[in-house]
């Protein structure tokens, strides 16, 4: 049962990721990314990380990707043109990616004993409650990193607001609405 869940959703995640790369329309790519995130959430859940799974669904697929789709829809982005790709990508990218993949799989396979293992789906049966433990660790031992991260995100939001704010146009002296509701702009001579 747990193995079947793992195989189905792992295959779905890989298929979604491939589709994400192969699709030419931004909306289709964004939706494949949603599929990847949802399948990852199921995998997290089958490993016992239920809070992580819920957060993945709510934050990533429910908020971040909705925003992406919203922006693509609003800008009405068209289909991408397919190019043959740069030569550097072929000569450096593919061997590089293969090397990173080999290195990672070597490390994981050789160190698999020291990394420890988790019983796939074992947590689904006895329903452990780990939200309490997560919040205890988050607000005691990891309090400083947690707060620093939230300040970092706050700074990022402020930065976005500053960048998006319109500079007052030096040419325009006043802009006001007249009685009929039409905006009147008086220019400096």
């Amino acid at each position: 049962m747990q193995l079947a869940l793992f195989i189905i959703f792992a295959a779905l995640a890989v298929a979604g990721a491939l589709n994400f790369l192969l699709q030419r329309h931004p909306i289709n790519s964004a939706l494949s990314l949603v599929v990847v995130m949802l399948s990852l959430a199921v995998l997290y859940w089958s490993l016992g990380a239920e809070f992580l799974a819920a957060a993945q669904v709510i934050v990533y697929s429910g908020a971040v990707m909705v925003l992406f789709v919203f922006v693509v829809m609003l800008l009405n982005a068209g289909e991408e043109e397919r190019t043959t790709g740069s030569r550097a990508a072929y000569f450096a990218g593919i061997p590089g990616a293969a090397a990173v993949f080999c290195l990672l799989s070597f490390v994981f396979l050789s160190e698999s004993k020291t990394l420890g293992s988790s019983n796939l789906g074992g947590y689904l049966n006895d329903g452990t409650v780990n939200i309490v433990e997560i919040s205890k660790i988050l607000f005691t031992r990891l309090l400083l990193p947690f707060e620093v991260t939230s300040i970092l995100i706050l700074v990022a939001i402020l930065g976005a607001v500053v960048l998006a704010r319109k500079e007052p146009d030096p040419k325009v002296v006043t802009s006001s609405t007249d009685a009929a509701g039409v905006i009147v702009i008086k220019e400096k001579v």
Binding site: V34, A54, G62
Partner: peptide
């Protein structure tokens, strides 16, 4: 979470 996924249908 499921409510937040439901937005996609409308969008």
């Amino acid at each position: 979470g499921i409510t937040s996924i439901g937005v996609y249908g409308i969008a």
